[in-house]
Design a protein around this nucleic acid. Structure first.
Lengths: 201, 201, 201, 201
DNA sequence: CATGAATGAGGTTTCATTCAT
DNA sequence: GATGAATGAAACCTCATTCAT
């Protein structure tokens, strides 16, 4: 689903950016069906009609956002799993994940929303499950290099832990001790602790 | 001759259950705003109009479901934290959580949906955050009894892990190795492993 | 529109009376379209279904009430214009009209309602205008016998005066000095005053 | 190029007027509950949806009309009771009332409809009874200045007479001799006749 | 005779989309 | 590019009427 050059230029246009940002925020907050074109227009401070100069439909706004989400995800992935010693990779992956959520919880929120209601956008499930699988495989690779038994399950658990912590954070952004949990997780997956983990049968 | 009181009650019960079940399923799958009264009627195999014989509005259907969710949650909680040795409690809590999601993923799905779009039902955030806090406190208590350092953060991590695993499970119910992940988690939080955890600084 | 014997018996049946009374009250108060079958059933303290054992439709309830209204009107008319000296007739007509409205403002209210919204019941306009015309003619006859000039217009004015006073009374039943207005009108149309009226050019 | 502010304003004015006029007519003719939004749209020759671009609800259309009614009523009142000799005032009041009903029977019809079914619009009763009271007081003042005994009752009777005549006129607009009745009333309340009235005990 | 559950047409309202300017 | 009025389908909801018991 790569966009044409044309479309990409549009994406950089101020108005269409504003539409996308507004839509992203509202879709994440109130859901796709709970957000009207009017809402988006109001949030972006433009007229309803103008939206249709940039997008064919409400659905296609979502598709554009989705594509963007994907690009971002891929960048992070590339960035994270650049070759390295596996201990370092793990630390970096955790740090990046937290950074990503802290900086833009909205993105993450929208993704979970879409995953939970896959009828909205057919591509969602396939594309994101593919993405997850890829990430899982890389994590498995890391755990294997480190020499941890049961690498696939450990990957599932780490993956779950990260996303679960984020979920709880989204549920209560003011009350959640995100920073301290991050530190704790980094320690849990530090070189020293992993060495011990290896020795557990 | 009119039906007896009994007969009427039973009819009402049956239809009302059918509506609630259909709505639960659809709300969980397609979201509240993505589900129409027509959808619910079709799923329950009744006429649209009849729904309003039982509920005042689409919203009040959701409220009824919400109340039910709450009752279930409280039962599980009571059941789980009956006094016991803390190791056992932890194991039981994990087992129960998995059982709960395995048996009715729909409930859990709806809850996450609601938590992510709290505008839909005002009560959601307060009520569920209260519930979470209570559970967290109980988990902290358990970790403390066991003698684990940093009990609050460990509770956050365990809580996140559980919900994150469930989230991933919901994203891909066929492909996810739920059973094996459960075993793994039970082992991670077994008496032996926790004793070691205590010895980590 | 005379009813069959059968129907008349039904009318005397307790349940159908109760339905008619409830409907009359509600139609008068909230209008035909503003009153639901449920409302009527509640007011009559019976089930919705039972209404259809006695009447074919909501419309036919109104028709029955209408017929009754008509019968009552005719009785009053007969009673009022029994031959007599015209001065006495006039006094009696005024008295009876007031008595009628005081005793059952509801009837009168419903009639005005129906006359203002003749689409509801096709017969209304024709039937009541006929009725009015008849009454007018009798009043004209009376005024003529008395020897009043411009009898038709005087009849219009007296007729208007009576109905207008009733209208105002219905608008504010507690605040309206109905009794005193009645006395005043009786005096205005007393033998002495009418004699003077005759002498006005 | 977007339309100018001016153009939009004019469009809105035109459509809004059209909706209000259509609604007024239909509410008066068929009652509030007897008129559907579809009816109004058809009468105004626009789509159903557009109505909600101008009014929040069917009820708020009625409220707008009601406000207008009130403004008109107040203008007439002010206009009528400008200071003057009382005989002249009386004549003017009667003339204005007739003019008002002749020119727009619809307004008057709607008011009576609303007064008879006050559940539809809470304000109706209070507001119009206040209005009536004010008019009554002014009429009483006039009668007093003229020196008529029992001014309050005479005011009730004149008020009733006017509204009753209008009521009958509305019941049968083609057949009613409105013009002649008006003349008659003006004569009845002419200086000469009132002088005689004063002499009646 | 009596009940109230159930239906379906139609009413009110919302909203994605189109269009004239 | 930009506006917001206008449309029409579809959403939510009400209610007269039917029906099994």
């Amino acid at each position: 689903m790569p966009r044409t050059e044309e479309q990409f230029k549009e994406m950089r246009n101020k108005t269409s950016r504003s539409i996308l940002n507004s839509a992203l925020k509202l879709f994440a907050e109130k859901g796709f069906h709970g957000t009207s074109i009017s809402d988006i227009a109001k949030e972006a401070e433009i007229s309803k009609g103008l939206i249709y100069n940039y997008f064919n439909s409400k659905n296609s706004i979502l598709e554009s956002i989705f594509d963007e989400l994907l690009r971002i995800g891929e960048e992070i992935e590339k960035d994270t799993f650049a070759d390295d010693d596996p201990y370092e990779q793990l630390q970096r992956m955790i740090k990046r994940s937290f950074k990503y959520v802290e900086e833009d919880p909205t993105y993450w929120k929208l993704i979970v929303n879409l995953m939970l209601q896959p009828e909205i956008l057919k591509q969602t499930k396939i594309v994101f499950n593919n993405f997850n699988d890829r990430v899982m495989k890389e994590m498995v690779g890391i755990f294997r290099k480190i020499g941890i038994q049961n690498a696939p399950l450990e990957a599932r658990i780490l993956g779950g832990m990260i996303d679960g912590v984020f979920l709880h954070y989204l549920f209560d952004m003011e009350g959640y001790p995100l920073e301290r949990v991050k530190k704790m997780m980094l320690k849990k997956y530090s070189r020293d602790n992993l060495e011990e983990l290896k020795n557990q049968k």
